[in-house]
């Protein structure tokens, strides 16, 4: 496998988003990654430098004023133009809001085959085998693309060790025949930077459910996450009740997570919640109800009151890690 086009999501000022590093590492396992970006001309150089710092040797750039004003349009054009320029067999994108829009548009425009939310990739001669999981991890599915270009979105994952920084070579991409796009009227700043790892790629996730009882009490979930250097998650009921932000919902209609450790606090373990977390390596549940279904999949279950267990657990873990 030669060139692997890798679509990199950028912030408006040209910084690669958190999905970039792991995606580039995936690409380099299959071939030579070519990072594809669309960026306003003012931030072009910053973006190229930032990608070089991630170890990317080749960057294909579409510099366009509309890169952050028209939703997904310049990005789609950039990937389509890069396919022309590099004739890759595979295009990788993050399975994020933007990555999915671009993947869908590119695949439809170019008549490519598309596989989404991949958890693993494997080269086999000229084709690539893509592993996805279905029904919350109950099934593992192996697919290949036949008859042309493969467009693949990857589930976000933790990045491995960083590659050495390089000076990237730049290919300028020409503009394309765009499809009309929606326009951005306003942006309200990102989710307040919590300093915690990203939920989708964290190796530890501590989640709270209805049993946590209130937004104020949710601080307990956050404190436990912090001593474990983990991310915070929530059940749908906790989100709907306003205890936690929507971006933290884990489950069938929220995020899918596969951390090394998942701790469920006051979560019953409804089938739709389990669909988002049951591929975690180790699951711990704390729940007052001994019959809660979460215990059926927990590697360690504590039948008890989270308000008594967690305040003792936090210092006990702190004592270990100190």
């Amino acid at each position: 496998m030669s060139n692997i086009l890798t679509f990199i999501e950028l912030t408006a000022d040209g910084a690669p988003r958190s999905s970039a590093a792991a995606l580039l590492q995936r690409a380099s396992q299959l071939g030579t990654p070519v990072a594809v970006i669309a960026i306003g001309p003012a931030h072009r150089d910053a973006a190229v430098t930032a990608l070089g710092a991630l170890g990317v040797e080749q960057v294909a750039v579409l510099a366009s004023e509309s890169a952050d004003g028209a939703v997904g349009s310049a990005q789609t054009d950039a990937v389509a133009a890069a396919v022309d320029a590099f004739s890759p067999t595979v295009v990788l994108l993050p399975h994020s809001a933007e990555g999915r829009d671009v993947a869908g548009r590119v695949a439809a425009r170019l008549g490519a085959g598309i596989v989404v939310d991949a958890i693993d990739l494997r080269a086999d001669g000229d084709s690539v085998h893509v592993t996805t999981s279905a029904f919350g991890g109950a099934f593992t599915v192996d697919s290949v693309v036949e008859g042309g270009l493969a467009v693949i979105t990857m589930r976000q994952a933790a990045a491995g060790e960083a590659a050495a920084a390089v000076q990237a070579t730049v290919t300028e991409l020409g503009s394309q025949q765009s499809t009309p796009a929606a326009v951005v009227e306003a942006r309200t700043g990102g989710a307040a930077a919590s300093g915690r790892p990203d939920l989708r790629s964290a190796s530890v996730v501590v989640s709270g459910g209805r049993g946590v009882g209130s937004k104020e009490n949710f601080a307990l979930v956050e404190q436990l996450a912090d001593v474990l250097r983990g991310a915070v998650g929530a059940s749908r009921v906790a989100v709907d009740s306003g205890y936690a932000a929507q971006a933290l919902q884990v489950g069938q209609t929220g995020r899918t997570v596969s951390p090394d450790l998942y701790i469920a606090l006051g979560i019953s373990g409804a089938i739709q919640h389990r669909a988002g977390m049951q591929t975690a390596k180790t699951i711990v549940a704390i729940n007052t109800d001994a019959d809660a279904p979460i215990f059926d999949i927990a590697d360690f279950g504590v039948v008890g009151d989270l308000f008594s267990v967690v305040p003792q657990l936090i210092p006990a873990i702190e004592a270990r890690t100190r």
Binding site: G113, I114, F139, T140, D142, V144, V145, G147
Partner: peptide, 13 residues
Amino acid sequence: TAARSIVVEVVER
């Protein structure tokens, strides 16, 4: 004529 994805294997975990 378009390329397409084909499922080659399904395994129950």
